[in-house]
Design a protein around this nucleic acid. Structure first.
Lengths: 340, 340
DNA sequence: GTTTAATTTGTAAGCGCTTACAAATATTGT
DNA sequence: ACAATATTTGTAAGCGCTTACAAATTAAAC
């Protein structure tokens, strides 16, 4: 076997053609005559030639790579959407560069910068709020970007997602309809997290409209960890302000809340109703099963792939805004009469 | 602002030095005198220069990129480990190229090929069993590889993981100690999945040693989905062969099983004990909480980053095998006296 | 103050590929 | 049959960077 991997040149020489022809066989096969093409392909296979991505990217100014930076890959929340994003890209022979920001816009900026240096052809971010320099850099490098997990009809950037505030309202509405008046909230850290802020704002607004109030002493912020949430809820209970329902910022927080309630022997939903957000696969299998918002993770991932691929192919930079449904899944943690 | 992004050349010209010097300022700052270096850095900042990844990769034969192909990103099972892998890489200014194989070795091969074309400097795979061509290609391209989620002291490839068979044995041992004799298994699809096979094999062996038997009619294979598992367990029960415990191939399957049992009003663990595998964060928060194997996902991810980075820096290609503990977490689904 | 060695900088040759453009070949119309 | 046109192939100039090597500068030794 040859010492090092064969290059385009090696193939060209072995096939007795020019490098341009070989390149065309690979990239625009229609442009080269069948006979020659077969011959070249035969040589390619015989030599086990594989194009060199970096060289290709350098010469063509296209890396066939798209970047995504998500808050965390730690749990299933975003992983699910990313899974379908990746599948979509893979089908088109694109590769996913994945980074995480740990819910920090500064870290996000760093990762975006790194990805741009890598020459990504497109970018996926979560939420609409990003470091201003992020948008600036993407713009300067002409990298199309799409924000997921968010929808804002006024946004000056493309987004594929759902209305977080409306989802928050839905939860509040459901609880109010079930007769709850004193509602607590365990939210994720709101700084650098527009989704968390909007969800809670939706709740607040709905309550206000109904003449109710989201009392500050019933609102807690904590990291997205079941353990932290357990603690937060326990504190809330110990603090003594009465409440009959707790809205959790996502399913992980709800899990933690349920776990705390079980330890405290507080019946759910009889004494305390609980809601989550995301509809992780497991939430339906819980006992009691969790009332939550069904986030269209799969579609967001798939559509993001389609959208970016299209931008790249056509050069189209029009901004697109896609609103997907995010429906409430009423289950046992808010409604014991609920049948799975 | 300049029409297009500044290049190394632009920086060199603006700073009145050669491109070599600018390159050195970036890559080996120690080699250039402080005064000159400051001047160059000033220009770099002023121009907002950012190196071009592909060009760099082409010239240096280093992409500063490592690839991972995992069975699925869909749920938290692997995502967690990948999270820490990514963090480790990011710290060293490396980027993660992520792909998924859908538990198919053929798809895995395709993705590996694609990643190699991209010029990755290192590779992370799950399990030891891969398409032979995978190993061949990695070898030919001199890409260091490490297998995660598996440990085999005899392996001719580097691995960082745990002994799946031993973990299976631990589960069986625990159940037998709890008095179970008729044990059912809901496993993931075993073809193309050495971890699943080993786990079940561990169970089988332990039972055999104890004079017990893993009855074929009590073993079901299904996709790693809670729903599929629900179905499988229901079938198992309907089939009528008695059993008092069911070992599930992972936590997702266990979730599905628990959900089915709840619907059938079968008390856990009284009538049927259940075990999982992976110790997803949520399993402790379940009710009843799930007995499972605590997989060292975080450490596997972190160590994989360290290992590959080291291989790349030093050029060392020695194979390394790291065995991490994977302990049984006894919880309520097998032991009602268990306190969280 | 030389000579010699060590350090800093510059020169220029690629890395492997794509792609304008030119040249060669094939196709069509008359 | 020949010119005019369309199609296929080749030529060669980069893409933006790294790095061996040479040249220039500085430091150390005598």
């Amino acid at each position: 076997m040859r010492n090092s991997k064969p290059t385009l040149q090696d193939v060209a020489t072995a096939a007795g053609v020019s490098t341009a022809t070989v390149s065309r066989c690979i990239n625009q096969p229609a442009q080269v005559k069948e006979k020659l093409r077969d011959k070249v392909n035969e040589v390619i296979n015989r030599l086990g030639y594989a194009p060199h991505g970096a060289a290709r990217a350098l010469a063509s100014r296209r890396s066939h790579t798209i970047g995504a930076v998500i808050p965390t890959i730690d749990n299933g929340i975003f992983a699910n959407g990313i899974h379908y994003l990746q599948r979509g890209l893979s089908e088109a022979n694109f590769t996913l560069l994945l980074a995480s920001s740990n819910y920090s816009l500064d870290e996000e900026l760093r990762e975006v910068r790194s990805l741009i240096t890598r020459g990504i052809d497109g970018m996926v971010l979560i939420g609409e709020e990003h470091h201003p320099e992020v948008y600036e850099m993407l713009d300067r490098h002409q990298v199309p970007v799409v924000n997921l997990w968010t929808y804002n009809s006024q946004s000056i950037h493309s987004c594929i997602g759902f209305d977080n505030a409306a989802a928050g309202r839905k939860i509040a509405e459901h609880l109010v309809n079930m007769g709850h008046k004193d509602i607590a909230v365990i939210s994720g850290i709101q700084i650098d997290n527009d989704r968390a802020r909007e969800r809670i704002e939706g709740v607040r607004q709905y309550l206000q409209e109904k003449g109710l109030e989201l009392k500050p002493e019933l609102v807690r912020e904590c990291r997205y960890s079941a353990e932290q949430s357990s603690l937060a809820l326990t504190e809330l209970i110990v603090a003594g302000h009465p409440f009959s329902a707790v809205i959790c910022g996502n399913d992980i927080l709800a899990l933690g809340a349920l776990s705390a309630l079980r330890q405290l022997d507080i019946p759910v939903p009889k004494t305390l109703a609980v809601t989550g957000f995301d509809n992780l696969e497991i939430t339906a299998a819980l006992s009691p099963s969790l009332t939550t918002i069904d986030v269209p993770a799969r579609r967001m991932g798939t559509l993001a792939a389609t959208y970016l691929l299209n931008c790249i192919q056509t050069g189209n930079r029009d901004i697109t805004r896609v609103q997907l449904p995010a429906d409430l899944k009423v289950r046992e943690t808010t409604d014991m009469t609920h049948s799975m």
